[in-house]
């Protein structure tokens, strides 16, 4: 049970003057139950990779397999794949079209055969999981603030009960309290055995939540492994990443000593926070 990429290449607008190579020979295996984060600069191919996982984009060459089934197969298997792989897109609010939030969240599950009380339950459950009150259900999705819209988008994917949940920069635009709550949501999804893939720009988020990190650069996966190990190796520059601000300070003050007790205490705080 896994998501497999075998030598996947993807080029936008192939055979036109606008050809743009976005993925370059990506090979990857994500097993059931893993929690993976994807990091990398803007334009490195993260969103492209994600859209290949449920057949929205088809590989230009190579193969993408979901539980062994290729995304280039027929429509029936694509339907099954979409049921298994739920994606929260980078700008999810662009996809809203229903008149109220209940219908917006119901759309996906209904499509996958949820009805009656099962439909109702999954909607309420996902709403609760993401920390929205039921009072929003009758509102139009267009009247929500940016962060609230994002939560609705996440809820509408969770409501489909996919096995693989893939989120493209889900926390951008969420306030810190919501991020905390979102992390809890992910933790409970993980406990339920779901496979979770999160694109993020936050090394901190990755450190705190993921077992494994992929780093992308120019359409290639340049790092695939343990993020804690990565941070210790301090190879940020090579991977076109920026250390979190406290790391930047930490790296510069290694070996500083002081006789001032208070200052020593503060520096100890920093070292503990960074586990230096």
């Amino acid at each position: 049970m896994s998501i497999e990429f075998k030598n996947v290449k993807y080029t936008y607008e192939l055979h036109t003057p606008f050809e743009k190579k976005a993925l370059d020979d990506v090979t990857l295996n994500i097993s059931k139950g893993e929690f993976v984060t994807i990091l990398g600069r803007t334009g490195s191919g993260k969103s492209t990779l994600i859209q290949l996982t449920n057949g929205i984009l088809k590989p230009t060459s190579g193969k993408v397999l979901i539980d062994g089934v290729s995304t280039t197969k027929n429509d029936a298997s694509i339907f099954e794949i979409r049921k298994k792989v739920g994606i929260v897109f980078q700008y999810p609010e662009h996809q809203f079209f229903e008149e109220n939030i209940y219908k917006e969240i119901a759309f996906g599950p209904k499509n996958f055969g949820f009805e009656g009380s099962k439909l109702n339950n999954t909607i309420l459950k996902s709403l609760n999981m993401i920390g929205l009150s039921t009072s929003v259900l009758s509102k139009s999705p267009f009247t929500l603030s940016g962060g609230e819209k994002r939560k609705v988008a996440i809820a509408s994917v969770i409501a489909c009960e996919p096995q693989y949940i893939i989120l493209d920069e889900p926390t951008s635009g969420l306030d810190p309290a919501s991020v905390k709550n979102f992390v809890k949501t992910l933790e409970s999804l993980k406990k339920m055995g779901k496979t979770i893939i999160v694109v993020t720009h936050s090394v901190d988020f990755s450190l705190q939540n993921a077992d494994r990190a992929l780093i992308m650069s120019k359409g290639k996966i340049t790092f695939d492994g343990n993020i804690q190990g990565f941070v210790k190796s301090s190879d940020f520059e090579k991977y076109e990443l920026l250390p979190p601000p406290l790391y930047q300070v930490g790296q510069k003050i290694i070996g500083f000593n002081t006789k001032n007790e208070k200052l020593a205490e503060d520096i100890k705080f920093l070292e503990d926070a960074l586990q230096l």
């Binding site: 930047q248 000593n257 002081t258 001032n260 200052l263």
Partner: peptide
Amino acid sequence: MKPDELSERLRELC
């Protein structure tokens, strides 16, 4: 302070 500025300040203090 920004990280650079802060590191510099800590250097001074130490």
